[in-house]
Design a protein around this nucleic acid. Sequence first.
DNA 1: AATGAATGAGATTTCATTCAT
DNA 2: GATGAATGAAATCTCATTCAT
Lengths: 216, 216, 216, 216
Amino acid sequence: METTRKGCRGTAGRPRCPGKEAAILAAALTLLTQQGFTRMTLDNVARAAGVSKATIHLRWKTKTELAAAALATLRPCSTPHTTGDVRADLAAQLSDFAAALTRTGGMALIGTCLAEEKHTPELLELLREHAVLPRHAGLVQVLDQARAGGTVAAHPDAESLASALLGAFYADYLAGRTGDPGWADRVVAALLRDTEPAPRVPRHAASSPGSRTGRG
Amino acid sequence: METTRKGCRGTAGRPRCPGKEAAILAAALTLLTQQGFTRMTLDNVARAAGVSKATIHLRWKTKTELAAAALATLRPCSTPHTTGDVRADLAAQLSDFAAALTRTGGMALIGTCLAEEKHTPELLELLREHAVLPRHAGLVQVLDQARAGGTVAAHPDAESLASALLGAFYADYLAGRTGDPGWADRVVAALLRDTEPAPRVPRHAASSPGSRTGRG
Amino acid sequence: METTRKGCRGTAGRPRCPGKEAAILAAALTLLTQQGFTRMTLDNVARAAGVSKATIHLRWKTKTELAAAALATLRPCSTPHTTGDVRADLAAQLSDFAAALTRTGGMALIGTCLAEEKHTPELLELLREHAVLPRHAGLVQVLDQARAGGTVAAHPDAESLASALLGAFYADYLAGRTGDPGWADRVVAALLRDTEPAPRVPRHAASSPGSRTGRG
Amino acid sequence: METTRKGCRGTAGRPRCPGKEAAILAAALTLLTQQGFTRMTLDNVARAAGVSKATIHLRWKTKTELAAAALATLRPCSTPHTTGDVRADLAAQLSDFAAALTRTGGMALIGTCLAEEKHTPELLELLREHAVLPRHAGLVQVLDQARAGGTVAAHPDAESLASALLGAFYADYLAGRTGDPGWADRVVAALLRDTEPAPRVPRHAASSPGSRTGRG
DNA sequence: AATGAATGAGATTTCATTCAT
DNA sequence: GATGAATGAAATCTCATTCAT
């Protein structure tokens, strides 16, 4: 939602001080995450970015537009490369996802977008576009490759499975279960019990009691 | 954390206007859901409840305490009865869960609690205790009964599976996929592909989204 | 400024709970001294007195009337007896005065009455009547006895001298000079240099450099 | 404790509206005197100064800081010049002191600082530094000059005498004796009976109140 | 363009007082 | 009479936004 020239490197007119743009957006994203939308004040953003409040308003008309612009700078973390081992690939992506959310305070950011959905649906939409959907796509791609390659029993509903894998993190976070190091592997094992004979993936503790591998 | 009457010497003094308590809490919960914590103002709560702001402060010292008290009024929806058919029971609970969240704007409430977690961790804790964990417990109970009864292939990691089932809703909501009437069935089908001999559900019939043949 | 029957011991009607009256006034006076008029809240008075706010309003219509009633309970400390030694008697009274003011936080109470004079002149008037004038009278009486007895050179302007003696405490307090143990003696010595040959009053350090006792 | 401009990179930004500073402080001092600290509201200060409340907060973070800043604007009235006539000089300063206190409502201001001493000791400290101690110093200087010049019998305890002279005003104010035009002369006469050979002032003429023959 | 000043519109909280039992 | 409940009217402080240089 920037108000003017995107290519601010152009020499026409008075060029805006380069770098200020990015500093403001970075500060806004940080504070949006740490404090939430309503507690993120322009004063704090300005102070953190080393500019004045008026400089912010010069670029974005309202606080809401600034928040949206900050969200739009979210770049989907480069997903780990696929190895062909479905479970390992899924676990790798899940692990990366969990780590990213934990490290950056991403759950608070998600919370902000959810909480503001009625007032400012753009926030959730931007989060979806820039963070949520890429994660889904990464998982679905792994599952589709598996099906295409035929190396493993293909899962018929990749979309639902991807939601369940990612969603398990949300649910565990809400339930207060966080930070378990083997979390990703366990979730993958729980949800993909039959997709592979899995000679390559050593069983984990979670698989113990009625651990039948059959039927698949 | 309602304030206890100080003296408590029996019933001296003007009795509390009955219903005011509940009206305030209901108004607070509604506004907390619709507006989020910071936008929920005591002025609005008072107006919606038909009381004065001071009356609110008489019972709860701070806005935070009021919000917590409102959250504590959340009652875990009575989970549907179990029938013994694992998939059907899980789908019924999931369906109820999705409906409740959709109807009451629960995702916004969850968002608020997540967004406020750093400032006011009580909110998320109360939400967890009153809404999240009961839902998990309901699903786990169904899965445990299944294992105990031996009627179906028991799932080895009921906790993870429950998280995945509930989490699928969160993930789908964030991804913008909401309101699909067959959602619960599809998720159950996707995650419990092998738990049942499934003579009644042909493998491939159940596999493609949109072609579910109902609860077993 | 009590609203009703003074003699609350009378058996006519419903007698007011005896002792509550005094407890309220004592609490009010304490808080008036410690917090000042505007910071003394009825809530705090009620709590300190162990009664409810409404009970206070039953006896005094307004907070101002309560404060006035509390001030009216001030009893002039029984002034020390006179010995006939003017300087010693004056110093004894001054010393008692300084001690009382220091011990009870009296300067804050005086400040409150002064600060409220425009809004509530009664407070200063009551303070004057119950605390200030009796102190003056005590000093003047000593000075008058001295003149009458002829034992010492009579001071022609007892009123001014009394004001100066008492005022020296106020001035020293404002100047930040407080708590000097020999304060009363020094002030008396400084102001009554010529009224007596003073064989009975040993000279203090303050009298040193040009210590002429003559001319009197 | 005015807030220093943050960046202070020269003269960037909109310059401060000149005079607003002084208007706020003047309004604050007036209201502090007339209403006391707790009744002096920022709303009233803002209205009286013709600014918005936020403008006040831009310069002073809290009401207390504003009050302190207002007190710090007190300038010790330029004390009258000394003539060499001790009694006349003292009386002139005392007269000026009494007039200033009477004219400006200074006793109410002193009362406020005393009443707030426990909560906000800065107020009394600032009053002391800016108003009380300069007055003391002026009197002590006169007394010291007298001693040095040897023109009059020096008083051995200038500090106590100065306190007594100034304090006589406080005491008389509290006692309800105010506004007497010959007050200063009478007090000087009462306290300095022996410091001068006094050929011009017959002992008994000066002794009865109301019969002073002027400055010397 | 960039900045600091200025402000209107609240938000939370407090308090003297009145009400109903 | 005594009490706890209830309230209207502030008071302090904050913040997104606009203004003047």
